[in-house]
Structure formats: structure tokens, C-alpha cells
């Protein structure tokens, strides 16, 4: 409804695709998933893979610290001014879905501070299988699970597994050790997700994030087309 009124806005409301000055704003991609599935490692790997081609920034939503932001800073995947931590009052799913105001502020502040960006990765704190991003905050979302969390997670479904624009099954190198059946995970995921893509990754190898990075590149190409 904000599109219908005639008032000039000094800040964009929600997911308006344009900046206040009319130029197309950065593509925003959310990364969610359970605790320990490798969201922060995926964000770090994506930054390394894409930072030479695109202007990137990251917003983290930690549960009770700036730990994820600190991890990214320590590993120097991006300069510090390109990383912002949002405090979530112990409820990351609230900050990425129900009350996105702090995240929108962080996103705008980043564009103000470091100039026009191509891509902003919004990382959720580890939460449960129902945590998804608001469409008012991100343009696409990635849900990261791992084989060690149990190979029945795709079968169980849930909004993250079922509706995310990309499902990432991480830590495939561990599958033999934890008794997870990758083939079964792929079949279950397809049953739940239909045509929506699934990427299997192992971030222990240098090129491990490639399927996710390729998917992001395709989204970026579509966004700026």
C-alpha cells in the first residue's frame, strides 16, 4: 500500500527494488538454517568467490553476540565497513521475518556507507527449520542444512527446506562418517521442492562453494538485467 500514496520517501520502505534516487538497489539474499549447518562458512566462502567481481556487503543476525560478524572480520573476507551485525534480542527469526526494521536499517546503512552495492548477504542466526526470511527484506533465500544433522531433514520438510529458493546440503564429506545417504536426501528434497534447486557442498575443498556461487551469479545477472 505504500506504493499507492504520493508522499516522497527519504528512505525506501521494505523491499522496493529501487533506491530513493531511482537507481536499482543491491540484490539481497538471505541465508538461514539450523545452528551449526555452516551458514557463516558459506557466507565467507561466497564473499571470497564473488568479491573480486561484485561489490558485496554482509548483515549478520546473531542470537546473542556479534560472533558471526566477528568470524567474518577475523577471516578478513570483507573489509570491516562492509559487515554489519544486527542485534536480535535472542530471536533471529523475529528480526528476519516478523520485524525486519533493524535489518532494513542495516542494509540501507551499508549502502550509504560504502556506496552502491551489487549484493548484500543477510545471514540469519542459527534457528529452527521454520525460520524463513520476509520478502520485505530479501529478494531470494538460501536454506543451509548439513548431512550431520540427519539425512531425514529433507523428508521432514518445513518452510525452510520446502520454499527456499536454493537448498544447500552442506558437509557432504562427512556423509560416510555419520551414515547419511546423499541419494536419499536428494530424492526427498526433490519430492518436497519440485523444480526448486538443491546444491550439495563441502566447504573443506577450495571450490566447494561453487554451486552456490554459480546460483548467486545467475540471480545477480537476472536482477541487473
Amino acid at each position: 500500500m505504500h506504493l499507492d500514496h504520493s508522499h516522497d520517501t527519504t528512505t525506501a520502505v521494505s523491499a522496493d527494488a529501487a533506491r530513493p534516487d531511482g537507481t536499482r538497489r543491491a540484490l539481497r539474499i538471505g541465508l538461514g538454517g539450523p545452528v551449526g549447518s555452516g551458514k557463516t562458512a558459506t557466507v565467507a566462502a561466497l564473499c571470497r568467490a564473488l568479491r573480486d567481481t561484485f561489490s558485496i556487503a554482509v548483515v549478520t543476525n546473531d542470537i546473542y553476540t556479534r560472533e558471526d560478524a566477528e568470524f567474518l572480520l577475523r577471516n578478513a573476507v570483507l573489509p570491516p565497513e562492509r559487515i554489519q551485525a544486527v542485534e536480535t534480542g535472542a530471536c533471529p527469526h523475529t528480526a528476519i521475518r516478523d520485524d525486519i526494521s533493524a535489518n532494513l536499517e542495516a542494509v540501507e546503512d551499508l549502502e550509504d556507507a560504502v556506496g552502491p552495492l551489487d549484493l548484500i548477504l543477510v545471514e540469519s542466526g542459527g534457528d529452527n527449520l521454520t525460520a524463513t526470511f520476509s520478502k520485505g527484506l530479501v529478494d531470494a533465500q538460501v536454506f543451509v542444512i548439513d548431512v550431520a544433522g540427519g539425512d531425514d531433514i529433507p523428508r521432514k520438510g518445513g518452510p525452510g527446506v520446502t520454499t527456499a529458493d536454493l537448498l544447500v546440503v552442506n558437509k557432504t564429506d562427512l556423509a560416510p562418517y555419520v551414515g547419511s545417504d546423499l541419494g536419499r536426501m536428494a530424492r526427498d528434497a526433490q519430492d518436497q521442492r519440485g523444480e526448486l534447486p538443491v546444491a550439495f557442498t563441502s566447504l573443506t575443498s577450495g571450490e566447494g562453494v561453487k554451486p552456490v556461487a554459480d546460483w548467486v551469479r545467475a540471480r545477480l545477472a537476472a536482477w541487473s538485467a
Binding site: G89, D98, D99
Partner: peptide, 11 residues
């Protein structure tokens, strides 16, 4: 309390 104005993150 669900009005999306950021209050949930403050004690």
C-alpha cells in the same frame, strides 16, 4: 508487541 518497530531486541 508485534508492530514491526524493533522493540523486541531491547530489554
Amino acid at each position: 508487541g508485534r508492530f514491526p518497530a524493533g522493540g523486541h531486541a531491547h530489554s
